[in-house]
């Protein structure tokens, strides 16, 4: 839903970042307003996942130039946990398995960290169980997964559902979903996409990072950005995704080459 007068939630300007000695992001500009769904598409290695990790504050990435402003605040100054508590959520491409840490306990601690930030009361075990059972419906997840260790032994689809469950509990204002569609079969994709659509409201912004446009059949983006060589090469509407699907990414290379020559 595009409303030009909607609040800007996230503003990325000239963002450069590297991991070790490799410069990966080379000047990303992107503005996310409340109510908008953006899709970032691009080949492997174009910098899509790096962008998501930099926004979430992964310590392996160093920002070398540019700014990221989240609701008027310098996001880059904040620790990963502060970003999360303030409402920035990263859905991982490869959710991490943490043997020995109970999924339920993890979800409760995370939810309470966000609630404290919002000035809400922390939930005790019982109250949290009620909440989590209600939110499980968003992703049609089996409650048995609550009793297991975080993501341990989960299938690819179950891990992604667990990510969206976390999103449903944390109620972020900006959700960045890194290849949430990868490794999902058609049914799981449909459920996850429905969950994401349900959680995208007029007050939130969603950034879908994806390689294929099949996720975009289930979630209609307001903007599609094509990323290449660490920057956003072109921005358009839903039709850009369809064009990519039809023509592949070769034209992106040509455009990039032309840009570099020019």
């Amino acid at each position: 839903m595009i409303r030009p007068d909607a609040d800007v939630l996230l503003e990325i300007r000239g963002l450069h970042a590297r991991v070790e000695d490799n410069a990966i992001l080379k000047g990303v500009d992107l503005t996310l307003r409340a109510g908008e769904i953006h899709a970032v598409m691009g080949r492997n290695g174009s910098g899509k996942s790096t962008l998501s990790k930099v926004l979430a504050g992964h310590p392996a990435y160093t920002v070398t130039a540019g700014t990221v402003t989240y609701r008027g605040q310098n996001l880059l100054e904040l620790s990963p946990e502060e970003r999360a508590r303030l409402g920035v959520f990263l859905g991982f491409q490869y959710p991490v398995e943490i043997p020995g840490v109970s999924n339920l306990e993890f979800l409760r601690v995370a939810t309470n960290a966000r609630r404290v930030q919002l000035g809400q009361e922390e939930l005790d075990t019982f109250a949290f169980e009620d909440l989590v059972r209600e939110r499980l419906k968003v992703v049609q997840m089996d409650p048995a997964f609550l009793d297991r260790s975080v993501n341990e032994g989960f299938s690819g689809g179950e891990k992604k559902r667990n990510e969206i469950l976390q999103m449903a509990l944390l109620e972020p204002l900006v959700a960045i979903l890194d290849e949430t569609d990868s490794g999902l079969d058609i049914d799981a994709l449909r459920i996850v996409a429905a969950g994401v659509s349900q959680l995208a409201t007029a007050d939130t912004a969603t950034l879908l990072i994806t390689h294929y446009q099949r996720l975009l059949e289930a979630i209609t983006p307001d903007f599609v950005h094509v990323m290449a060589a660490g920057r956003i090469l072109r921005t358009g509407g839903r039709e850009l995704a369809l064009e990519l699907e039809e023509r592949g990414y070769d034209w992106v290379d040509q455009e990039l080459a032309a840009l570099e020559l020019g």
């Binding site: 946990e81 999360a84 943490i98 995370a110 976390q166």
Partner: peptide, 15 residues
Amino acid sequence: QLDELFYLQSRGIAA
């Protein structure tokens, strides 16, 4: 493990 720590932190859990 750095990745495990980051995953937890990215959910608002202090380091």
